[in-house]
Write a protein that binds this DNA or RNA. Sequence first.
DNA 1: TCCTGGAGTTTGTCATGACAAAGTATTGAC
DNA 2: GTCAATACTTTGTCATGACAAACTCCAGGA
Lengths: 251, 251
Amino acid sequence: MTSELQGRVRPVEVDRTSPVPLYFQVATRLQELIEKGEIGVGARIENEVDLAERLGVSRPTTRRAIQYLVERGMLIRKRGVGTQVVHPKVRRPVELSSLYDDLVAGDRAPRTEVLRLEVMPAPDLIANALEVAPGTPVTWIERLRYAGGEPLALMHNAIPLDVLPLTQDDLATHGLYELLRRNGLTPRIATQVIGARSATSAEAKTLTEKRGASLLTMTRTAWDAGGRALEYGSHVYRASRYSFELNLSAG
Amino acid sequence: MTSELQGRVRPVEVDRTSPVPLYFQVATRLQELIEKGEIGVGARIENEVDLAERLGVSRPTTRRAIQYLVERGMLIRKRGVGTQVVHPKVRRPVELSSLYDDLVAGDRAPRTEVLRLEVMPAPDLIANALEVAPGTPVTWIERLRYAGGEPLALMHNAIPLDVLPLTQDDLATHGLYELLRRNGLTPRIATQVIGARSATSAEAKTLTEKRGASLLTMTRTAWDAGGRALEYGSHVYRASRYSFELNLSAG
DNA sequence: TCCTGGAGTTTGTCATGACAAAGTATTGAC
DNA sequence: GTCAATACTTTGTCATGACAAACTCCAGGA
């Protein structure tokens, strides 16, 4: 019960000429120390006041750095006690990225086949999800996504025409989210529903599954920072090849 | 193009005698105004400096209140532009709650049947998920969850014995998370994997589904603020009756 | 022995002041 | 009239100072 938990952080230098905010420099450095295990799980880090003084930054700056890691689930703070390492890895909140990006990052050789691409007036269901008037022109896309040479997912998307016109070539070589971002459209908020159902015979054939095989379903609507609906998607994944991973943290 | 977007917030009073932090009072009041539609979607709110002055609080306090709503997806900020309402409802991040709590909240009359409850040494898979030594004593639970009189989910959980001893009676009438919280154990971080598969004949029978019906699967490990693993769960849900809803926001 | 009270530690909240950076709008030159 | 430079607005970052609240620990009294 003495000072066994008093893991002291090593010197952290800040670069005031850098355009990177100081609080972020401090947070990044702390994160490195924790990920490398130099500050072990369970250890308390230096208190805010001392840490600030040693780094030559103000206490609010130090606080903000620590807060950043608290929100990511690495640290917890207790008033009167201190700040403790609870997990050596960053637990990201659920990410807002496309399947394509995920596969690229996971080195699973994605390929996309565009089955259909047409402009049509939005039916009620889609108009409702996108919060636009029924009949608003949208680009309707059906794509088959392969990974490692095998079909993985059948994807249906609707993108309002005035958000972004899309071509077959773009979609064959890039993820939808990448195309959105490239045009300055950044998804910021999304609502998703994840469920499951059995494959229809057409779906089974397309995905090279048996009829009645279990499929994961995901429908999503994504909005940009301005509150404009960018995309509605209704996808089915081969449950035998794919699952969703989530990291949650509660306030 | 004049000032149509300049929705000004009405007077907001702060109560300095209240134990509720000022930033939270301001945030709550702003949230109310937005939810009631008094500040419409797309409207800009007053700038930080003016708002602070009018409320008689400092700019950091105002900033913190606004930041709180930004993180919840109601507002977005742009440097040089201002702060804009993008959504009239709070978009909560994915919640860390149990199915039981959700059903109670949704008024779906949950009922729980405890099929099995025993203490056993943790097998490798579970020990691994809980990050404890293999063989550590855990309480192993199998429960059948009903909603609206019908079976909804078959739930398997492992709780380390030194975290919390459990009895059959407790579990029949309360959700697992409620029991944890009641004993001062608050889940703070969790990792989940959501997938799907076909029901085995035993599962189908228990859940009154046809053999081969699609089931949603969810495995989860939850940790408390101290980084201690509280619970490992492996559940299957009737896909015909249940799906997961998520709200995401990307920084 | 127990437990109550107070001192000390550490994070939580709040104020004030200052400058930087990123947009927007206006003005002026060509 | 068009375009570029400039002024202005608004949020982003940072410092300093102060007090409050929650927790731990130890000493003293019942």
